[in-house]
Design a protein around this nucleic acid. Sequence first.
DNA 1: TGCCAAACGGCGGGGCCCTCCGTTATGTTA
DNA 2: TAACATAACGGAGGGCCCCGCCGTTTGGCA
Lengths: 187, 187
Amino acid sequence: MAVVKRADARRNHARILEVAEAEVAAHGADASLEKIARVAGVGSATVRRHFPGRRELLQAVFAQRIGALAEYAVELAADPDPRRALVLWLEAFTDYGTSSRGMAGALVAEGLVEDGDDEGCTVRLSAAAAPLLERAARAGAVAPGVTTEDLLALVTGISLATEGRPDPAEQGRRLLRLTLEGVLAPR
Amino acid sequence: MAVVKRADARRNHARILEVAEAEVAAHGADASLEKIARVAGVGSATVRRHFPGRRELLQAVFAQRIGALAEYAVELAADPDPRRALVLWLEAFTDYGTSSRGMAGALVAEGLVEDGDDEGCTVRLSAAAAPLLERAARAGAVAPGVTTEDLLALVTGISLATEGRPDPAEQGRRLLRLTLEGVLAPR
DNA sequence: TGCCAAACGGCGGGGCCCTCCGTTATGTTA
DNA sequence: TAACATAACGGAGGGCCCCGCCGTTTGGCA
């Protein structure tokens, strides 16, 4: 299915995506679809044709970054220190989340829908994180019972909570460190 | 200033607030101001007159819960175990955040504006948390360098990340525990 | 009771999301 | 290469929302 699109369709798809990236970067996950259409020089219906809803558009916008994170996870799988590997990946994830506006919002928005569709950002990130977490857990470097969903939720939360305040990157790093090592002193 | 409002003004104020509570509970921080006006049986301008923006309305809606949290903090100040007191309060805060839709959103929305105005929810919560945190820190129960802003941000993030998924209360508790005790095993 | 400021609320402008439908561009076949 | 079938386009219109304006009502006070 979905063999080959027509030339103009491919052209518009690329154009919309390009504009959407800029627009989302500027205004977050709530960027105006209509404005994206205007700037891209297409009708608003065309945007909806390529991306049925905001959710799909955001997925497409962040697919690249998600891919980069997945790649990084693969690299880190070879790191000799399982704990370090997990921490490094979570730091990278946090950096992405706090630096690229709307990504965290896209992730929660995605979670809100009953999706039979695979290939969601959440699924991909989860798949990327799983091996790192498992390895770290096997090495005894992780608190018992932690799941990949927990990790994604925590980082997403940190991103959302720091969004739009001075220096979200630094704040995010700080909060991640607290979360990883614990707010309370070990008993 | 702002001596005594007229009778109808007070009446409408109460009515709007009442409706707003229900509406926000149902639709989160993005509830329609116009619908609130319709249901309350007043003009939309009247809503804006009492609450210049969504932010102020949300503040008013949650003021009660914030007050309850502040009170609880005072109670807990008498708890013999400083660590336990802090944990209990954070759990209560998380429960509020995950059970009452929109509260976390209201908190971040509040942070986005340059506010010279005191009496924001953030300020009140911060003030409530400060003594508990300080006492716990003095007892050596808290990781060094943790601030009240950190605590608020973390709980807010947890609330946002769990909003609108199955069983946010349980998820929130779980994530809070992880955050407090640390995702990583102590080295 | 009568006055007047405080408070109200309807209305119009602008924006967004969404859908429908007539028009255009593209790929293909003769 | 010319004509056709259709994938893809984009403008227009409806519904909802936020916002500000401004003429009208209402409540408190002399």
